[in-house]
């Protein structure tokens, strides 16, 4: 790693609750996504579906470092962040099905999950577009005089979008409380970082704007928590944004239709050897934070949560097509052109 967060490492640094949350939330993300992949194969889920398997620590480790009043925004690989934030898995699964009980009543779909109650401000489908928006969300917190911040996730592909660079500059100019996170899983769809960016150490792009910028082991949830906590402290002090590059990996393809000819089986297996979920499980067992029996209980609980989510989605009603006219405008009597 080219540059590390400054805090020192020891074996057990966080509370039992934190480790339990990491294990349970990452397991829920994984099992949920595995199930979503299966259901996609059965054509219960249609359209686009981008799975988070392998990247779980990027969401889970950030969640424990922030408060419930902080705001979240990410790209279209967006099922896991709200799962970690406590959104009902049934509502997310129903959204993937397109049911009326989904997070956005079936209007957003897989790429556009929103949960206002938990400050999850989307799921955005245009690569990089969420970055200026995330800047604006943080801008509003500073404008209102709160101590809250916005954490804005993006993929490595987004880093080559102009919008991102404009946002980085503006965030530094206005000293905006934002944490920009690159979830660098190595591939923008099928194009590796090497083939699409002259600068492969992506975090160094932040340095061009004098933005504090760090690379972090994206497979290690403790490292992620630590880096986000430091960035949050900086933002809350009024020192502005931080850029964090989480070096992670997705085990599945970019989306469901990806044959993954751009990488080797060996590469995938290598990353699986550093699996974030296995790592945290090992720390928990090695340090007697939880017993194997307690972990098994969590496994059972998560399995049931996912089963319940699928059942909820299956049994939920389809939306009324005419409801597509709702939520286009807040103005209730907006005169749509009807023919």
């Amino acid at each position: 790693m080219a540059k590390k967060s400054t805090a020192t490492k020891s074996k057990v640094k966080y509370s039992k609750e934190t480790y339990t949350f990491w294990y349970e939330s990452m397991l829920l993300m994984r099992r949920f996504e595995e199930k979503a992949g299966q259901l996609y194969g059965q054509q219960k889920i249609r359209g686009f579906c981008h799975l988070y398997i392998g990247q779980e620590a990027c969401a889970s480790g950030a969640i424990t470092a922030l408060t419930k009043d902080d705001k979240w925004i990410t790209a279209y690989r967006d099922h896991a962040h709200p799962l970690g934030l406590g959104t009902d898995p049934g509502a997310i699964m129903a959204e993937l099905f397109g049911k009326a009980t989904g997070t956005t009543k079936g209007k957003g779909g897989s790429m556009h999950i929103f949960d206002k109650e938990r400050n999850f401000m989307g799921g955005h489908g245009i690569v990089g577009a969420q970055v200026p928006m995330g800047l604006g969300i943080g801008f509003a917190e500073k404008y209102k005089g709160t101590k809250n911040l916005c954490i804005c996730h993006m993929g490595d592909g987004a880093v080559r979008q102009g919008a991102v660079h404009e946002a980085f500059n503006l965030a530094m100019l206005y000293k905006t409380p934002v944490i920009f996170v690159i979830e660098n899983n190595g591939y923008a769809m099928g194009t590796s970082v090497k083939r699409s960016s002259n600068v492969e150490e992506l975090y160094t792009i932040g340095e061009a704007y004098d933005m504090p910028a760090f690379a972090v082991d994206g497979m290690n949830v403790e490292d992620i928590h630590e880096a986000v906590a430091e960035a949050a402290e900086r933002a809350r002090k009024g020192d502005g944004p931080t850029l964090l590059e989480f070096r992670t990996y997705r085990y599945k393809g970019h989306s469901m239709s990806d044959p993954q000819k751009y990488r080797t089986r060996e590469e995938v297996e290598e990353y699986k050897g550093r699996d974030p979920l296995e790592q945290v499980k090992k720390t928990i067992l090695d340090n007697d934070i939880l017993t194997q029996d307690e972990l098994t209980e969590i496994d059972k609980k998560v399995k049931k949560q996912v089963e319940d989510a699928v059942k909820f989605a299956e049994e939920s009603p389809w939306p009324d097509g005419q409801d597509a006219f709702k939520d286009v405008y807040l103005q209730e009597d907006y005169p749509f052109v009807m023919e």
Binding site: M121, A129, P132, M133, L135, G136, F139, E166, A167, L170
Partner: peptide, 10 residues
Amino acid sequence: LGFAGLGVGA
């Protein structure tokens, strides 16, 4: 693009 997006987020 940057400040229009900032406005949307705000």
